[in-house]
Design a protein around this nucleic acid. Structure first.
Lengths: 336, 336
DNA sequence: TTTATCTTTGCACACGTTTGTATTTGAAAC
DNA sequence: GTTTCAAATACAAACGTGTGCAAAGATAAA
């Protein structure tokens, strides 16, 4: 392992001052073309790589954007990662992804790391166990642009990209009601997260509007797995007034329900209607194909990046509180 | 946005020298307990965050490990990400994930970024379009530990964690032969990648051993999508000697085949046997459930991290060329 | 030849932190 | 009161790069 080559090494070798080398490397017009080419050639041949720590120490920023997600395993988030990676790359940035694993302590640690390095900006969707937002406001304190998407901290003034979860759940519920289902259950996540709270309210309000008094059937799942989906269905069916339809907030829970229904020889949609958030491959693979709620990960990524880039370029303030809404939609298939 | 607080700010405020503050923050015994507590208290209250650029400029390394993957969307890789994130966190590191999107230029850019910052180490699986490994050897030049997993560059001396693709594909092929299938096709990826090359060789050798002369039915897919899987099956079935079994190298291709078969009213496994790499949720959801080849992402992640950590701690050389093999297995279900 | 103007290069300091060495302080020993 | 020693703190240099300013060198105008 050889020592890292620096601007001073090049300068010494070429008998010029290191400031000349510095300028040459950045195509400063103040340096003679001949010497510039000489420097560039030497740098190229000797694999010179800028030491960004030195550059950033002088106040410059990274060309790296940090993306914080709860769980990269969930299709929604991995799709966001993919889209955002591409957009960022096209715009000259590099995207660096961090997974909190739904763990508050890890989230705090990650934000801390991001602050200690000089990232250009941060895109985040918070963990289920995030109890306070001090670490995120710290980002703002240090002047690092922050955009939330999907799961957000409401008590912090920063741009947010949301999905119209209330509306779409209202619509989905109403759709089931109009199809004749009366005992509609809702399987969702912890309601201290805006996403699940909005969905629950949409569900409740839709039932209210249609004077259906079945609103107690809300099951809060603390984790999203197929197993939990299966046991949820078992529990729901063991009660006196079994549901005849379920709106599920997670694709894995939905799959659990579908699999369990199959194992119990329940017919979908005859015995049980099913409509789930997340329009992924499995929704098409499973029989019957599932009526699903889709969200455009591309659109979310685009808007999120657009806001972040504007913050980085000081076109909008770091304290801006603008909220952008992305519309979800329903893909009608055979499970209702 | 307030100015970032530094060690010197604290020093000035507390009327001590900044070197004392520096020592206090790192619990150096040479500083008085009283002043230490004073410093720590002040730092805490004013949200002091170490400027890692300054620290790293002096030669120190990050506590961050970079993970480079072709595509975070593929379950195999997102599982690796999850596992590796957890392991790294437990060991006091933070994992930062980069997606190359199977693009060589992006891969080069990412490696360059990693070098310019001072990452503690790199874990990588190369892109499909990686034509040379200069950028990776540059990592070694700069003394940054590198471990390859799954898809590797063979021409570079560094630890590698591989899956026994040859053996398992041989085994899978033999299994189909023993089940009575004679016209076994193989749907796989570009064979300049070790993974697909190994699988293809396992397939070919198994057929050879059993004197089956059907080895021309190898289809190289340049991308892994459901759509391509579907069209591949259409093409294969349009030929004279149609296959009666397929070994597929990608879960998405496998799904495409299964969906197309369903649409053409082909019975699996009666009309067509199917065995695919990747044992994921969809393999269980689809009917009939698929016989699949699984690889332990946890085991791969563990071994990879173990090797990387040893390199970081100088327990093994940065030029070590050790190769560790992880065993894949077959889950027997209903598609053969 | 002298003066003015422009091009090119060199110099020195700053960024925030760490660390070896020097200095100060205070107390104990003589 | 002076010396000795240890504890605590201050000083200074270094890491690699960028940049305002000064200086030198070259060219053109007078």
């Amino acid at each position: 392992m050889q020592k890292r080559i620096t601007i001073k090494d090049i300068a010494k070798e070429l008998n010029v001052h290191h400031s000349t080398v510095s300028r040459a490397l950045r195509n400063d017009p103040r340096v003679n073309v001949a010497t510039r080419d000489l420097v560039l050639k030497y740098a190229q041949e000797h694999d010179y790589q800028t030491n960004m720590n030195a550059v950033q120490l002088r106040g410059a920023t990274n060309n790296t954007i940090a993306l914080i997600v709860p769980n990269i395993n969930h299709t929604f988030f991995s799709d966001i990662v993919s889209q955002l990676t591409n957009i960022a790359y096209q715009k000259g940035y590099i995207l660096s992804v961090f997974q909190t694993n739904e763990d508050f302590a890890q989230e705090v640690g990650i934000v801390s790391t991001i602050i200690r390095q000089n990232y250009a900006g941060v895109v985040a969707s918070i963990s289920k166990n995030t109890t306070n937002s001090n670490h995120f406001s710290l980002l703002k304190t240090f002047g690092i642009p922050l955009v939330f998407f999907d799961r957000v901290c409401n008590d912090i003034q920063t741009p947010k990209v949301l999905v119209n979860n209330y509306d779409i759940t209202y619509e989905a519920t109403e759709y089931l009601v109009n199809k004749g289902y009366k005992r509609i259950a809702h399987l969702t996540g912890p309601t201290h997260i805006n996403v699940f709270n909005d969905r629950q309210n949409g569900y409740i309000d839709a039932l209210k509007k249609h004077n259906i008094n079945y609103q107690k059937k809300i099951v809060i799942a603390d984790e999203f797995t197929v197993e939990l989906g299966k046991s949820c269905l078992v529990n729901l069916l063991s009660e006196i007034d079994k549901p005849d339809a379920i709106i599920s907030s997670s694709i894995l829970l939905t799959m659990g329900i579908a699999v369990q229904a199959r194992e119990m020889s329940l017919q979908i949609p005859k015995d049980l209607a099913l409509i789930g958030f997340g329009n992924q491959l499995v929704s098409l693979i499973i029989q019957p194909q599932l009526t699903s709620i889709y969200q455009s990960e591309l659109e979310i990524a685009e808007i999120t990046f657009e806001l972040l880039e504007k913050m980085i370029n000081k076109e909008i303030s770091i304290d801006s509180n603008c909220t952008r809404m992305v519309r979800a939609g329903i893909v009608y298939r055979d499970s209702c």
